Amino acid sequence: MQYDELIGEVQHRAQLDSREAALSTTRATLETLSERIQPGEAENLAGQLPEELGRHLENVDDVERFDLETFVERVAERESLGGDDYEDVAYRSRVVMEVLDEAVTGSVMTELKSQLPDEYDDLFALQETEATAGPDSE
Rank of each mutant, 00 (worst) to 15 (best):
Q2G: 08
Y3I: 00
D4Q: 11
D4G: 07
L6T: 01
G8K: 05
G8D: 11
E9I: 00
E9C: 02
V10G: 03
V10Y: 10
H12P: 00
R13P: 02
R13C: 04
R13D: 15
L16A: 12
D17H: 14
D17K: 13
E20H: 06
A21W: 07
L23K: 07
L23S: 08
L23R: 08
T25Y: 06
T25H: 11
T25W: 02
T26Y: 10
R27V: 13
T29Y: 10
T32Y: 04
L33A: 09
I37N: 00
I37C: 08
Q38T: 02
P39Y: 09
P39R: 06
G40D: 13
G40H: 13
G40C: 06
G40S: 11
G40L: 08
A42H: 02
N44W: 08
N44G: 04
N44R: 14
L45N: 01
L45K: 05
A46H: 14
G47H: 09
P50G: 07
P50A: 07
E51M: 08
E51Y: 14
E52F: 06
E52M: 05
E52G: 08
L53A: 04
L53M: 11
H56C: 00
N59M: 02
D61M: 03
D61Q: 05
D62M: 05
D62Q: 11
R65Q: 14
F66Q: 05
F66G: 05
D67H: 12
D67K: 12
L68E: 07
L68Y: 11
E69K: 14
F71A: 03
F71L: 06
V72N: 01
V72P: 02
R74H: 13
V75S: 04
A76G: 06
A76T: 03
R78K: 15
R78F: 02
E79N: 10
S80R: 13
S80T: 14
G82N: 10
G83F: 04
D84H: 03
Y86W: 02
Y86N: 01
D88I: 05
D88W: 12
V89S: 07
A90F: 15
A90K: 11
Y91N: 01
Y91K: 05
R92L: 02
S93A: 13
S93G: 05
R94C: 07
V95T: 12
M97I: 01
M97V: 03
E98T: 11
E98C: 01
D101F: 01
D101V: 01
A103S: 14
A103F: 01
V104R: 06
T105P: 03
M109R: 05
M109K: 05
T110Y: 10
E111R: 05
E111I: 00
E111P: 00
L112Q: 10
L112H: 11
L112E: 15
S114R: 15
S114E: 15
Q115P: 04
L116N: 09
L116C: 02
P117W: 10
E119K: 01
E119D: 10
Y120T: 07
D122S: 06
D122R: 04
L123N: 06
L123A: 04
L123W: 04
L123E: 03
F124L: 07
A125P: 00
L126Q: 13
L126N: 13
L126D: 15
Q127W: 09
T132V: 10
T132A: 15
T132G: 07
G134T: 11
G134P: 07
G134W: 08
G134F: 14
P135C: 09
D136G: 13
D136W: 09
D136Y: 15
S137M: 07
S137W: 15
E138Q: 08
E138W: 12
